[in-house]
């Protein structure tokens, strides 16, 4: 879901950068407060893993493919949506600057979409559905699916504002593809939460009640 430069006019791209920078600043504040010496390696390994898994495009029907985003996973494992902003910003900078994956003028939009929206939707849907399911794995699946699907719809709206996609057709096609890609996101999120939770039960705390 990396937006290339040509998809958004520069003034709008600049506005998305401003919003993204605000959240990046908040994520750095989160890092200063929450990143204790012993949690830094966990954050780094998660960031590296998310970068690697984003390189695997899995085929879906209709001549299309999709890859994991990882924002919900980061937010669930580290217990904050700002963790997703922190990690996805890092991943998107390396992807954009080194590999031309996602534009540079529109990187603010990509950080806003995949880091901020993906992270917040992932985190709060996980906290929201856990009390109903009482099981972290299906909660992680739903959080992963929703984080990707909602982000895709937001991108469709941004494309409509940019004049790139007509709103309705954009929502339908982005929703169709990412409804399926979301299954990949949810599945890998749940599998990764399972592996981490099995190896180190102390890392992921079960959310006892809905976030206040």
């Amino acid at each position: 879901m990396h937006i290339p430069d040509a998809f958004i006019p520069l003034p709008q791209a600049a506005l998305y950068w401003v919003i993204a920078l605000l959240f990046i600043a908040l994520s750095l504040r989160w890092a200063r407060k929450e990143l204790t010496e012993d949690r830094i390696p966990l954050v780094a390994v998660l960031a590296a893993g998310i970068f690697a898994i984003q390189a695997i495009n899995i085929p879906i029907p209709w001549g299309t493919s999709g890859h994991m985003m990882g924002a919900a996973l980061a937010a669930i494992v580290l217990g904050s949506p700002f963790a997703a902003v922190f990690i996805l910003t890092l991943v998107l900078i390396v992807q954009g600057v080194l590999f031309g994956d996602g534009g540079l003028t529109v990187m603010g939009a990509n950080i806003l979409n995949m880091g901020v929206i993906g992270g917040f939707v992932g985190f709060y849907s996980y906290r929201g559905v856990y009390p109903l399911l009482r099981n972290i794995y299906p909660a992680a699946f739903i959080a992963g699916w929703l984080s990707l699907f909602i982000t895709a719809l937001v991108v469709a709206v941004e494309m409509a504002i940019a004049g790139t996609f007509p709103l309705e057709l954009g929502l339908i096609s982005m929703g169709l593809y990412h409804g399926v890609i979301g299954i990949i996101e949810g599945g890998i999120t749940a599998a990764a939460v399972y592996l981490i939770h099995t190896a180190r039960p102390d890392i992921i705390s079960e959310p006892g009640r809905v976030a206040s």
Binding site: M1, A55, T64
Partner: peptide, 27 residues
């Protein structure tokens, strides 16, 4: 964790689909 990440990275080009991604396909 690092080993898993590197394994995924090494495998990626051999198993990844070259189809356009969701956004590109919509475009």
């Amino acid at each position: 964790g690092i080993a898993v990440a590197l394994m995924i990275a090494a495998m990626a080009p051999f198993i990844a689909s070259s189809n356009p991604d969701g956004l590109e396909s919509a475009f």
